[in-house]
């Protein structure tokens, strides 16, 4: 069995007048795999290339060198373009700039309409997709009447209606308030649990990565870490040096270790820290 998404040695450049050779390197040899049903979080400081990487996963950008394969099909091959884009759906940062229609159900219909599906099948998908993100009651509402979290859930429903096997969230929670972020994360988590859809979450909120299966850290267009969140965050000092914010718990644990408390290095949830501290106290 191959991987659902396979990124091999991808390099990508943006034209840039000021830089050497007239181009700026955005991705400098990235390797990454995503398996069916997997939750992969990708973090990196600004300019680390994480959004560029995201756009490679469904052929919005094509690699200058290397290759991206989705379900075994190269994104370079124009024959597979639409298959790849319906396999890997994408949700973007600004909810206002990705909703096409002035009616929620019409927007959800946009993808399936592009696929040329029969009307009754599209109507079925509208209903099931909106229900899956908890927006079933909003089908006849106008997007501008919705909150940020609701709009982003509509955008997810729009992707879902194409029945993808992977959803890429490109900083999809960055413009939302904490409540909206929570709404979106819960909706995504449910989709993965109930429908087995793989999730690639590009983010700079370290608090969101603890529940991922894998945490990939990008820096300067390269993958500098690719492991379980626990293993990556255990290297808190390194992570901080890459300009990333460490989750509060890990940071606190790190400070306590510096003060000489014998705490384990891989604490990522508040509950774990509490338990470790309690154990420490009862043992002394």
């Amino acid at each position: 069995m191959g991987h659902l998404i396979e990124v091999r040695g991808v390099r990508f450049f943006y034209p840039s007048a000021g830089a050497a050779e007239g181009r700026r390197t955005a991705l400098d040899g990235v390797d990454l795999t995503v398996d069916e049903g997997e939750w992969v979080a990708v973090v990196g400081a600004n300019g680390s290339g994480k959004s560029t990487l995201a756009k490679h996963l469904n052929a919005l950008l094509l690699p200058a060198e290397g290759e991206v394969r989705v379900d075994g099909k190269s994104t370079r091959d124009p024959v597979h373009l639409w298959t790849i884009r319906r396999t890997v759906g994408m949700v973007f940062q600004n909810p206002d700039n990705q909703i096409v229609a002035s009616l929620v159900e019409e927007d959800v219909a946009f993808g399936p309409e592009n696929l040329g599906l029969p009307p009754e099948e599209i109507r079925r998908r509208i209903a099931s997709s909106l229900a899956a993100v908890g927006m079933g009651d909003f089908a006849r509402r106008a997007p501008y009447q919705l909150s940020g979290g609701q709009k982003q859930r509509v955008a997810i429903a729009g992707v879902l209606a194409m029945q993808p096997r992977c959803i890429v969230l490109d900083e999809a929670t960055a413009m939302l308030d904490p409540a909206g972020r929570q709404e979106v994360l819960q909706a995504v988590e449910r989709l993965r649990r109930e429908r087995g859809i793989a999730v690639v979450m590009i983010t700079h909120f370290m608090d969101e990565v603890a529940h991922a299966d894998r945490l990939v850290v990008l820096s300067g267009g390269r993958v500098v870490a690719d492991d379980s969140p626990r293993a990556v965050l255990a290297r808190a000092e390194e992570v901080a040096q890459l300009g990333l914010e460490v989750p509060q718990v890990s940071e606190l644990a790190l400070e306590l270790r510096r003060e000489g408390l014998p705490l384990p290095a891989d604490l990522i949830a508040p509950q774990e820290l509490v338990e470790a501290l309690c154990r420490l106290r009862s043992s002394t």
């Binding site: 469904n58 639409w82 206002d96 700039n97 990705q98």
Partner: peptide, 27 residues
């Protein structure tokens, strides 16, 4: 213009390729 650019990318990501072969959910 910035919005238009982002919207175009989002539309392409959702398989938009013009009116050819496109269906409508409303009948």
């Amino acid at each position: 213009f910035r919005r238009a650019d982002e919207l175009a990318t989002a539309m392409e990501a959702r398989c938009y390729h013009g009116g050819e072969g496109r269906t409508r959910y409303r009948e």
